[in-house]
Computed example of a mutant assay.
Amino acid sequence: MLYGKALRDRIASAGTTPLIGVHDMYSASLAARHYDGLFVSGFGFAASHYGLPDIGFIAWPDMVAFAERLRGAFPRHHLLVDIDDGYGDPELACHVVRRLERAGLSGVVLEDQKRPRRCGHADGKQVLPLDEYLEKLDQVLASRTDLLVVARTDATDEGDILIRAKALAATDADVVLVDGVRSVEAIRRIRGVVGGKPLLFNQIAGGKSPRLSLTELAALGVDVAVYSTPCLFAAHRAMEEAMTGLKSADGRLPAAEDGGSIGVGDATMMLTENLHRHSMR
């Protein structure tokens, strides 16, 4: 199966294609029951795998291993992976891309940040000179055969954003992403300079970008919507509440029907269904 082509075809269809951020296999199992497209964000992976912030700690073999497990578990889903800056020099970025393509991933996101890098919705981001990033991007594009590539800029100056977005749209990248877009009007300006190239919008709770529905995004000409952290933040909130409740109850577990959470039977049933579904693929 050509996973890159399948995602391109989906993006080219009407409306805005949603990709849901997952951070581990359990969150992926839940998200995959509701959506056919998954996204692995650097923010979520750094938090879940290392317990660290998204400032460049990810080692590429860890991300590749997780992506391989995802593809094995979800053979029919679109899988887009954030590879940050390619984890170093262009040669390493190309190696990672080739590994992910062999594993059957649908696509990758490659950013233009320089180290020390930051979450795309954090302050203090710095970007590479445009020509240096374009050289890395060209090498990555030349190293793939089918894999979809999202060219991402983390520029924050309005003029630089438009210059870079236009330059990225002129490459052979499949999709353009400007991360941390701050307004609807900014989306319109970016849409105007990228021409017919597909445009991706990244939403993260508490981030710098406006919260928009898929209908609103489609009206703005956005082709792909990535939801980076809904599973991670929901898990954070639920676990914090569970620990607070357990402590206040002197260690007595609430009944499942009282605690508002699933019980072991429900969780086991869901995981058993997933196992059966994957074994039948």
Rank of each mutant, 00 (worst) to 15 (best):
S213G: 12
G159Q: 07
F201M: 08
T156E: 13
T145R: 15
G207Q: 04
G196E: 15
K125I: 15
V127F: 07
A186N: 09
T153Q: 06
R188Y: 05
D138W: 00
L177Q: 10
Q126M: 07
D174W: 10
G207P: 14
V178G: 05
G207M: 08
A165P: 09
A151E: 03
V176L: 05
V193Q: 01
L130G: 02
T153G: 03
V127A: 13
D160R: 15
E216F: 07
L199V: 04
R191E: 01
V184G: 02
G195E: 12
Q139A: 15
L130S: 06
G192H: 11
S213L: 01
G124K: 10
I187M: 08
D174L: 09
T215P: 03
D157L: 11
D154Q: 09
E216Q: 14
D179F: 06
K208A: 13
R164L: 03
G196R: 14
L162C: 12
Q139H: 11
L168M: 05
Q203Y: 14
L212G: 12
S183Y: 08
S183R: 08
S183D: 07
T156M: 13
A142I: 06
A165D: 05
K208H: 13
R152D: 09
K197S: 10
K166Q: 15
V194D: 00
R189S: 13
K208W: 06
T171G: 03
A169H: 06
L130W: 02
D138M: 00
A167Q: 03
G196L: 13
G207Y: 05
T215C: 08
R182E: 14
T171K: 06
E135C: 01
D157G: 14
T153R: 01
L148M: 11
I163W: 06
A155S: 13
E158Y: 12
L148S: 00
R152V: 09
R164M: 03
L147G: 03
G196K: 15
Q139E: 14
Q203L: 12
L168T: 02
V194F: 01
N202I: 06
K166G: 14
R152S: 02
L137M: 04
S183H: 10
T171I: 02
R182H: 10
V194K: 01
V176T: 07
V127K: 03
L137A: 04
P210A: 09
V181R: 00
A155L: 08
L199K: 02
D157F: 04
V175E: 00
E158C: 11
F201P: 05
G206R: 13
A167G: 05
A165S: 15
K125T: 11
V150C: 05
V150T: 09
D160P: 06
R211H: 11
D160C: 12
L214A: 13
L148I: 04
D154L: 08
G196P: 12
T156F: 08
R188Q: 15
L128P: 01
P129V: 07
V194L: 03
S183M: 08
D157A: 14
G195A: 09
S183A: 09
R164N: 02
G207K: 09
L134P: 12
